[in-house]
């Protein structure tokens, strides 16, 4: 049965909590590879908790249950010529909205159109005590109370189980074109940075030795930009392929997040995204303790690593630990998924 499963999910949480059974929150599993999954967890399936609860195109807001699949949401939004500006990765599957928000991953347009967290307006959360709490809402601005909604983005379900989510949606751009250009690694950073400043640019990345640019806006503006950069016009799928990591072949992939103009990891990168801010490295063998800049996540490979995210500073660690204790003191949810200690 599909539809509102709130009470079932809350029951499952309460029962697990009573017997000390730890839970893994799972949507459609497109991100099973991300983070560490501890043995012995019982799965909370959010997938049956599906459906669009409220969609008001003129308000630029949609509220959906966390098990709703991206394909369904995208289809609904397309009906009103709208879309999710943060363009979440699909990794070859059909992720749920809950997983999209919990992982907080955004597509190549992120520096230009914002991230998942920027579009999140509110959510309903199942707590480790099995109660349902609601933060934020469906309005564009809301500063009543701490921003607990956005705190869930990137927490990978370690603070609670997302039930319903309200997202800001955007009108689709009138027109979009992508081009591919030759570029040398020496000038890559400067080139990405200068394109970043151009208003119509909504993607600036680097794969297979090529600089990829995406332009969005009116027909006139987009064609003006395309002719200005004198590159080869390519299909928009170059950006969705990059988003879904189709360039990766070796099975050992690391995501490095650094300052866009940094040289760090640039020469080794097999792909660069976010106008320079993300470098994808294959077989990097990078030891997190020797990370010189930014932060990293081991995506694929190196299965011996149970810590898949590079460590936090001691100050951040301290705050994370205390928040975890307040939200989920017994590590009921997604034990060790983010960091080994909890």
């Amino acid at each position: 049965m599909l539809g509102d499963q709130t009470s079932l999910i809350l029951d499952q949480i309460r029962q697990a909590s009573a017997v000390g059974q730890k839970l893994q929150i799972r949507g459609s599993g497109t991100k099973d590879f991300l983070g560490f999954i501890a043995p012995g967890l019982v799965v909370v399936e959010t997938l049956p908790h599906q459906g669009v609860i409220n969609y008001r195109p003129e308000e630029l807001v949609v509220t959906v249950r966390s098990g709703t699949r991206l394909s369904e949401l995208n289809a609904v939004l397309a009906g009103a010529d709208q879309y999710l500006a943060f363009d979440p990765p699909q990794f070859g599957g059909d992720p749920t909205v809950g997983g999209i928000v919990a992982s907080g991953l955004s597509g190549p347009g992120r520096p230009f159109r914002g991230a998942v967290r920027d579009a999140l307006l509110g959510l309903t959360l199942a707590t480790s005590e099995g109660t349902s709490v609601h933060f934020g809402g469906e309005v564009m601005k809301n500063v009543a109370g701490y921003d607990v909604s956005r705190l869930m983005v990137g927490a990978m379900g370690t603070l609670g189980c997302l039930l319903d989510v309200s997202l800001k949606v955007m009108p689709k751009p009138e027109h979009e074109s992508c081009v591919s250009l030759d570029v040398s690694r020496d000038t890559l950073v400067a080139s990405l940075s200068s394109w970043h400043r151009q208003a119509a640019v909504t993607g600036a990345s680097f794969v297979d030795g090529k600089l990829l640019l995406r332009f969005s806006g009116s027909h006139e503006e987009v064609s003006r930009m395309v002719s200005r950069c004198a590159g080869e016009v390519v299909s928009g799928s170059v950006f969705s392929d990059l988003r879904d990591l189709k360039f990766s072949t070796s099975g050992d992939l690391l995501r490095l997040s650094v300052a866009a103009n940094s040289r760090y990891g640039l020469d080794e990168a097999i792909a660069v995204d976010w106008a320079g801010g993300i470098r994808w490295l294959e077989d990097s063998g990078l030891d997190f303790d020797h990370l010189q800049q930014g932060h990293a996540v081991q995506y694929f490979g190196r299965s011996e690593l149970t810590e898949r995210y590079s460590p936090l500073s001691s100050g951040l660690q301290n705050i994370h630990l205390k928040l975890k204790q307040e939200f989920d003191s017994t590590s009921l949810f997604n034990y060790q998924r983010l960091y080994g200690a909890w």
Partner: peptide
């Protein structure tokens, strides 16, 4: 404590938003 920085995204929880 430094939260976020020059990168586009943060590690762990979105403390910046909080």
């Amino acid at each position: 404590v430094s939260v976020g920085g020059v990168e586009y995204d943060q590690q762990g929880f979105d403390l910046l938003a909080l």
